[in-house]
Structures are given as C-alpha cells and as structure tokens.
C-alpha cells in the first residue's frame, strides 16, 4: 500500500456556514486541522468550481478528501458518517459550473493524468435553514467523522 503522511493529504471542505448543517464540512475541516496539525492542507469552499481542479495537483498531494454533508435519509447515503473513494466523473455528469467531487477530479485530469486519490467523507445533516449553528445530530456526527478520518489515515500511514 502507498504510504502517506498528513501533509500529503488535502482536505476540500464544501458548504455554506450560514446554512446550518450545510456548514458541517468546513467545521469538520477546521477540527481535523486542529487535531492532525497545520500540515494537513484544507481548502474551504462554498461549492466546487472548475478552477479548484488546479488546487488538487500540488506536488505533495497524494490524497484529496472532500468533506461534505449529505441530507439525512437521502438516497445512496447511509445514515451515519462514511468515507468512500471517488473517481473522476464520466462526461455526462458534468453539466453545470459547480461540480461534484468526481466532476472536479475529471477537470483535474485535463491538466494531469496521474491524479491524487479521491475520497469523500460525508456526515448526515438535518437542518439547512439560515443559521450558523449545527443541529445536534450534525454536531454528534462530527466526532464520529474525526474518528473515521483517523482510521482512514491509519490505513494510509504509519502514524
């Protein structure tokens, strides 16, 4: 298995911190940087746009972990925290100027064939109304997300 250290991991935290649980990704990004050190790169963005693809291609970046929230109960997601691999999208999935993680990886491939590995770490969200507070459920999920990231990192690194 390819080994990496936290400094070879780039977090891309998506969400709007003024929309309650939608901001869980950026909040999680801050927590992970505090726990694993400032060497862990973290980009906080409202949405994924094509030019961000260039940020994935830093020489030292071996893994990109997208941090996002999924609506509790939405199809295709489990009810808890999960981290899954992400692969570059097929062309039909690219339809707007804001992108999915796999869409962003597809754009990154425009510039470089050898991409970092992509991962998506999501936490469930319940409330997406205006507000800067996370719902109790989302707050609870953040701790599990930290642990999930730790386990994932362990699988990628000799800590």
């Amino acid at each position: 298995m390819q080994k990496c250290d936290p400094e070879s991991v780039l977090l891309v935290a998506c969400g709007n911190t003024l929309r309650s649980d939608d901001g869980a990704g950026p909040v999680l990004g801050d927590r992970l940087v505090r726990r694993f050190g400032p060497g862990l790169g973290c980009l906080k963005v409202h949405q994924l746009t094509p030019e961000l693809s260039l940020d994935l291609l830093g020489e030292s970046v071996k893994d990109v972990v997208f941090l996002d929230v999924h609506q509790q109960g939405s199809k295709g997601y489990c009810t808890s925290v999960e981290i899954l691999p992400v692969h570059p999208a097929a062309p039909g999935d690219l339809t707007g100027h804001h992108l999915s993680p796999s869409g962003l990886l597809a754009f990154a491939r425009l510039f470089q064939q050898d991409l970092p590995k992509g991962w998506l770490l999501t936490v469930p969200g319940w409330s997406f109304e205006f507000g800067e507070q996370l719902s109790p459920g989302a707050r609870d999920s953040l701790k599990r997300a930290e642990d999930c990231f730790y386990l994932w990192l362990q699988s990628r690194i000799d800590l």
Binding site: P50, A89, P91, G92, D93, L94, T95, G96, H97, A106, F107, L110
Partner: peptide
C-alpha cells in the same frame, strides 16, 4: 447531451 462543459473538455 454533449454541448456542455464535459463535451468541451
């Protein structure tokens, strides 16, 4: 179906 950003890529 192809006249979009993906098609451009």
């Amino acid at each position: 179906a192809t006249r979009n950003m993906a098609g451009l890529l």
